[in-house]
Design a binder for these strands. Structure first.
Lengths: 147, 147
DNA sequence: TTAATGTCTCTAGCAACTATAGCTTCAAGA
DNA sequence: TCTTGAAGCTATAGTTGCTAGAGACATTAA
């Protein structure tokens, strides 16, 4: 059995995060030692590694919750899991597109900065006047959802 | 003079957001009408448009605060503004790199989904076992700061 | 005049943690 | 066995950048 610290080290997750996951029901309530400390077995380590990996891939906790409940019932069709992954892929793709447009705009700003005074600074100028931008692509903040 | 609603419409910013910006000191305290409603002039509209545009480009409010104070002193060197913009550019570039790695991984996942049962589903399997991943690039969540 | 809309303040909520305070438990060395 | 330091416990509050709601007041159009 692992203590919470060992579990965290094994899965690459910080201790308060594990307690947080338990609190929101992503991990089951842990068994306790005689001294009230949490103890974990391999099953929780696997589950936590799953969560950690999915978080790394940008899945939201709600999506992970769904994926976990799917994996808890292995006889079902995997269409739902596939759907979640495809939605995630689409979101990642759209974020890449947006960020690429931002990058181009920032590069333009930075390259054109003369290194002189603020009054002539291209960075400040472009930020103050959107019409100086090459594209409008970054005018859609609603697509910039947090991962 | 503009009411807060007109200002918001003109700058493309929601009304509560304007009040929030005032609250955290990004916008100065507004003049008030006889009936205690906020009134704004062109200067605030410009400032708000600046903020909006910088937010669209992914700058954090703290960076915007710095940029605004820079733009308030037009005789200074613009090196600081340049530095902020370059930092932003670097962050955007690193996010693109990370997202591109994620995209590859997610594509692999969905391509390999056989459409069968969960028990054999690659989506679940890959998420449960990081060693099945093609890359380790998504193991750096500290670069995934919220925009 | 009345109704509809806009604005006011204040508080609470969101995601996904992270940090702090003040306590208890555990493991290892002297 | 005692002691010390690390690790664990709970509970609460803070983070970022807003957004939503309640209940009251102001303004404007018909």
């Amino acid at each position: 059995m692992l203590t919470i610290g060992k579990l965290g080290a094994a899965a690459g997750v910080k201790v308060p995060t594990i307690r947080y996951y338990e609190q929101i029901g992503l991990l089951p309530e842990a068994d306790r030692s005689a001294g009230n400390q949490r103890l974990y077995g391999q099953a929780t380590l696997d589950r936590l590694a799953f969560i950690r990996h999915a978080r790394d891939l940008g899945f939201r906790l709600e999506a992970i919750r769904d994926l976990l409940s799917l994996s808890d019932s292995p006889d079902q069709s995997c269409a739902a899991a596939d759907t979640i992954a495809r939605a995630q892929l689409a979101e990642v793709e759209s974020r890449i597109l947006r960020l690429t447009a931002l990058k181009a705009e920032l590069e333009r700003m930075v390259v054109q900065c003369s290194g002189g005074r603020i009054a002539n600074c291209r960075v400040i100028e472009v930020l103050g006047d959107h019409s100086l931008c090459a594209t409008d692509d970054h005018r859609h903040p609603e697509t910039e959802a947090t991962p």
